[in-house]
Write a protein that binds this DNA or RNA. Sequence first.
DNA 1: CAGTGGTCTAGACCACACT
DNA 2: GTGTGGTCTAGACCACTGC
Lengths: 271, 271
Amino acid sequence: MNTPPDLAAPGLPAGPSDAPTGVGAVTPIPTPAFSPLYQQIKALILQSLQAGEWKPGDLIPSELELAARYKVSQGTVRKAIDELAADNLLVRRQGKGTFVATHSEAHVQYRFLRLRPDEGTLDSEGPAQRQIIACRRLRPPADITAALGLRGGEAVVQVSRVLSFAGVPTIAEDLWLPGNAFKGLTLETLAQHQGPMYALFETQFGVRMVRAEEKVKAVAADAATAERLQVPEGSPLLSVERIAYTYNDVPMELRRGLYRTDSHHYRNDLN
Amino acid sequence: MNTPPDLAAPGLPAGPSDAPTGVGAVTPIPTPAFSPLYQQIKALILQSLQAGEWKPGDLIPSELELAARYKVSQGTVRKAIDELAADNLLVRRQGKGTFVATHSEAHVQYRFLRLRPDEGTLDSEGPAQRQIIACRRLRPPADITAALGLRGGEAVVQVSRVLSFAGVPTIAEDLWLPGNAFKGLTLETLAQHQGPMYALFETQFGVRMVRAEEKVKAVAADAATAERLQVPEGSPLLSVERIAYTYNDVPMELRRGLYRTDSHHYRNDLN
DNA sequence: CAGTGGTCTAGACCACACT
DNA sequence: GTGTGGTCTAGACCACTGC
C-alpha cells in the first residue's frame, strides 16, 4: 500500500485520486519500504525550497492552498510542515503564515555559534568585530576536497578571519567553500557586509545552510594563531571543525576555528 | 477561555465535562496566559512520571486508556505523548506501546557522552573501562552548592573516576550529587555496577536524568590530571562541565571532566 | 472583518507485535 | 485475531494578525 495517490513521481500530483488513503491500485508486491503521505508532501515542499521556488524569508502558501495543490487534507500538510519547522527549515507564525527560515533575522543570528561569555550574555558584549584577513581561490588539498565531497579538480574559496568580542580577539578561523557555487566572493564583499556570513550566502549566492556537524578538540596554539589571538604560544585553544550542509545533506562549507576559552565557553544542551 | 474542563487542578479530572473544547464557565477576565488542553495532559503525564507511578522502562497505559482517564480524545493524548517522546521522556514502539525512557537500554547508553573516536565508532573500541578512584561524602564548597541549588548545609557525594578506551585513559572526571537523594551510594556499589552510571541512579535511587547542559573549554593539564591521564603536564585537555537535570529542571548532578582529545573529539550536531 | 496557523474531536483504516 | 501506535480525513472552533 505504498506510494499512494500519484505522489510517487516528482512534480505536482494530478489525476483522479478519489481514494486518497493508501488505496490506489492493487500493489502486486506489498512494498516493504513504507512511506506515509505526509513524508511525501514533506519531500515535495523540500523540493520547492531547494529549487528556490520559495526563498529564505518568503511567505509560503497557506496550509489550505498546499492541501489543495497536493490533493491531501490540511492535516497531512500540517504534519509535513510541522516536521520541516522542527528541522528549522520553516518558521510558523500564527495569524501570519509560514515562512522560509533565514539566517538574516536578528533573533536567530549566529544560530550555529556556540561560544558564550562566561559571564553575561552574547548581547552584553555587543556585536562581534570581524576582521577579514584573506579571501582567495585555490586548488584544495585532499582533506578539504574529501570533506566537501568535491568532484574532479573543483577550486575552492578560502576565507580567513578573526572575530573579537569586547575588543578581545577570540576566534581565528579559516573556511573553505566550493568554488563553483561561490564564484564572485571577494574580500571586499565580505568586508562590506553586515551581519552573519550565512545571511550573505543566502542573499548573494542562494545557498542556505541548514545544519552542521562540529568536532571539538583541545589543542595548543601554534605561533601564527598565538599572534592572531594575542595569547602565548602553546596556550590551550578550542579547535572547532565544522561541516555545514545545505538542503539534502550536501556539504557546502568546511570551517576550522580556534577559540580562546579563557573568558568564554562552548555551550551545548543535551537532550 | 483558558483552563478548560476541570484539568486546572492537579490530579485526575472529574465532573460532567460535556463541552470539552475550551468552553466551560464564563471567564470574567480573558486570561492572557493560554494553555492548550494537550499541554495540560502533558503536565499530568509528567506528574505521574515524576511521582514514580510509571518507572523507567515501564509500559504506560495505551493512548485510548489515557484518553478515557483524562476525558479527552485520543488525538489530544497523542499530541501530549508526541511532545514527551520528542523530549526523550517517553519512547513509542508501534504495536507494543509507549514506555518510560531509560538509560539502561543498550542502544541509548551513554546518551550524554559526546566523545567519539576520530577513527571508527564507539563500539569498535569496545566498552569503556571504568576505574572508580573515590567516593566520599562532604560539605560542598560554595560553587557546588550554587550549581546544584542546594538548600541549607546539605552534604554532597563526590565521585572521582577515570574512563579508558581501548586501554588508554581518556576521561578523568569528578561528580557531585545531592547527599539526600543519594544516601547509600558507596564506592563498592559503583565498582560492582555494570553499564551506565545513570542507569544505576534510576534503579537504585529513583533519579532519572532527563537533560543536561555542558560548558566546554580548553585547558592545560595540571600535575594530578596529567598523571591520571598519562599525558605531559600542560597538555591541552578538553574541560567539560555538565549539570544534569531530572524532571522539572531540578539539577541533580554536577560533573567536571577532563578529556584527552589526541585521538578522540567532542561531537556536536547543530540544527 | 477575513485569513492564517493552532487546537480538538470523531471515525476509519494501516502497520506492527504478540499470542 | 487482538491490541498497540501511526496515518489520514473532515469539520468545528479558537487565537492571532492585519486590513
